[in-house]
């Protein structure tokens, strides 16, 4: 792995999604998505279940190949192999995607140990620090299948934080968390951005998270972006789909 230059070390990357289309077996899931996310922004994507949010994130980090269009990280296509070497990217998967055969500590330290970035003792220290941050102090030796869904999600977040990424993608980071943990995670999203100027893309249904931490919000519906703008702009967008989504509440009468 190349040593990043000190300059690039502590700055986020910009992300550009150009005319992205994706079909699975002839069914179009993304129907022409265009987004521009400047370095250091906290960008939130919201939209109904099945609208293509996870698929979009998987494209941004290069796990899926677009049917059409491209994704540029600092102007370079994510499909080109040197992008993964040059920039530190991280993704928190919706399911956590922890390696089941490894302990919590091994999962969290995996990036550092596999790339030989730090000596083992230093890795142990960083892992303990990140686990404490996500409220899982002392859980190092447990295995993923002994954890609850929310705990897995928090381990996954710790694993992403260890990378000190320049771009971090969160797929529903707070969906399985109690309100208190959700606040801690939301704070950490903001804190991480302040500390290392990371670019954050957050997929979430969580309206509090959206209007609390996001600089800008995109609303996606059936594979198309209906609106992009600041939280206030999106809140005031007249599109009935968006209004319906934002104002959905239980009503007992």
């Amino acid at each position: 792995m190349n040593e990043p230059t000190p300059d690039s070390n502590h700055s986020g990357v910009s992300v550009k999604v150009c005319g992205l289309r994706k079909s699975f077996n002839g069914q179009e899931v993304l129907k022409g998505v265009d987004l521009e996310i400047p370095s250091g922004e906290i960008f939130l994507i919201m939209g109904p279940s099945g609208s293509g949010k996870s698929v979009l994130l998987r494209h941004i980090i290069g796990l899926e190949e677009p049917t059409e269009g491209e994704i540029l990280i600092n102007g370079k296509s994510i499909q080109s192999p040197e992008v993964m070497e040059e920039y530190r990217l991280a993704m928190v998967f919706q399911s956590g995607a922890l390696l089941n055969s490894l302990t919590v500590a091994e999962n969290v330290g995996l990036y550092l140990s596999e790339h030989r970035l730090k000596p083992p003792r230093e890795i142990a220290r960083i892992v303990a620090e990140k686990l404490e941050l996500v409220g899982l102090k002392g859980q190092e030796e447990r295995l993923p299948n002994e954890l609850s869904g929310g705990m897995k999600k928090r381990v996954a977040i710790a694993r992403a934080l260890v990378i000190e990424p320049q771009l971090i993608l969160y797929d529903e980071p707070t969906s399985e968390l109690d309100p208190l943990s959700a606040v801690v995670i939301a704070e950490e999203i903001v804190h991480l951005k302040k500390r290392i100027h990371v670019t954050s893309i957050v997929v979430s249904h969580d309206r509090e998270l959206a209007f609390g931490v996001a600089h800008r919000i995109a609303f996606i519906h059936e594979g198309q972006i209906l609106a992009v703008g600041t939280p206030d702009q999106v809140r005031q967008n007249p599109n009935p789909v968006i209004q319906h989504f934002l104002n959905a509440n239980f009503k007992f009468d």
């Binding site: 796990l63 993964m84 995607a97 990036y111 596999e114």
Partner: peptide
């Protein structure tokens, strides 16, 4: 079975995002 389940449960995707 082991690699297959890692594939299905996105563990391999997670490795790839970590550039492993």
């Amino acid at each position: 079975a082991e690699i297959g389940s890692m594939r299905v449960y996105q563990e391999i995707d997670a490795l790839r995002t970590m550039n492993i």
